[in-house]
Design a protein around this nucleic acid. Sequence first.
DNA 1: CGGGCCGATTGATCTGGATCAAGACGGACG
DNA 2: CGTCCGTCTTGATCCAGATCAATCGGCCCG
Lengths: 243, 243
Amino acid sequence: MLPGYALRCRMNVLPPCLNSIKSEAPAAVRCEACPAPWMHCSVRKFQKGQYPFSQGDAQGYVYRVQSGGLTLFLSLANGRRQVVDFAFPGDLVGLGSHRQFQFTAQAITRTELRCIPRDELRLQSLKDARIASMLYETAAFQLEEAYDHILTAGQRGSEGKLAAFLLAMSRRNVHHGDDPAVVHLPMLRTDIADYLGLTAETVSRTFTNFKAQGLIKIVDQRHVRLIEPRSLVRLANAIAASG
Amino acid sequence: MLPGYALRCRMNVLPPCLNSIKSEAPAAVRCEACPAPWMHCSVRKFQKGQYPFSQGDAQGYVYRVQSGGLTLFLSLANGRRQVVDFAFPGDLVGLGSHRQFQFTAQAITRTELRCIPRDELRLQSLKDARIASMLYETAAFQLEEAYDHILTAGQRGSEGKLAAFLLAMSRRNVHHGDDPAVVHLPMLRTDIADYLGLTAETVSRTFTNFKAQGLIKIVDQRHVRLIEPRSLVRLANAIAASG
DNA sequence: CGGGCCGATTGATCTGGATCAAGACGGACG
DNA sequence: CGTCCGTCTTGATCCAGATCAATCGGCCCG
């Protein structure tokens, strides 16, 4: 119950003023469809492995992932990490009413972040019910995902965890154009492990296991084709079951 | 990512109209301090073990726990349960924009629930930014707790999990009057186990273990005195550490 | 083309917690 | 006061996954 983990929200529940923000747009954009004020935005670029922000940093902006991706994690006293989420293009990171980031973000690959002034957004949300409702819906959406994550993390069984993870990633991830059955996994095996509460070795073994069972096909280290999604669903739901 | 887990929120971030709802108040209360409309509320009573609502039930009300407590859990295909949260007096259960409950509630003891019409609350939130902001704050608060739970569930080590749980309960639980170091644990060991992703046996053994280490004192089966909260914090933070 | 590096995979062993099994406690009720 | 039943605790065994260790593989860079 540390105060104020920052929120991440999805683009598709944002007002047009934020949806319309493009890399090519001028730094200050005006939204005609909603009463949000001018948003003065800049874009920052990060190399793979860099930390856009860390636990405890003052939180002046809400970030929108333009390209690349982020791993969001909590550091523990003994050096362990708990990955709480990943963020991909279109996702917003840093909503919430607190002054400091409660987790650290690390760039998975070269990543561009658009910086949205946090105070302006918050100010407007207090004035306009539509914006506040949007934020509420967004937080509720996040909460659903978090419960799903709790379910996954609490599940015994590496197979159930990894199956749930693959299915979740296939739902939210942008598939690489042509084939919707191919899931893109840009993050490290270590990150997947810390997300699921496993070790990298177990993640690797379970991938191999799935491959041997014919459930997936490993295109390359960053792409997996789901051959038997039905079976994966069964594994994800009937966790650590006998059958 | 099943749509719409219901939300539970804390009393202290609710508008006065909801805060002022008491068991003794008339069923319909008028809030003068905020524009929320008349709320026609009834009170329902449940015996220990009963299910106020189940996964998939139509969600007509937001419930406020008046007395007693609830275990909120997801049922899995193989009969396992994942407890996602507990609700105690003052907590609200069932916020969110979806039409069905996504989890089941079970009364821990004899429990009274005040039923707040969900549609009215939602309608008002769309009109009034203050209410919507309140809902947002509430959801954000819930999300913090959920991240905390993810952290706990993802932690290796029964000691770290149980220590984190005891500390969390001591923070949110109403202490029994006199002694703030005594934590009330009204739920079954099984519920604690399903909350933490352990078995009831392991929970029991870990309690015994803590007792033997002098970290806690077991007053009775439902009350635990924290003797060395510092050590518990260390266990909760430096999870599964060597020391 | 060849070396160095980091991450992924695979192998071998160990252990914490699950599981199976039995007993102890305690409240409800006659 | 004693029986019953559900819960909690304790004990013994087993196994999934952690850990330790080695190899493999791709990628960058010279």
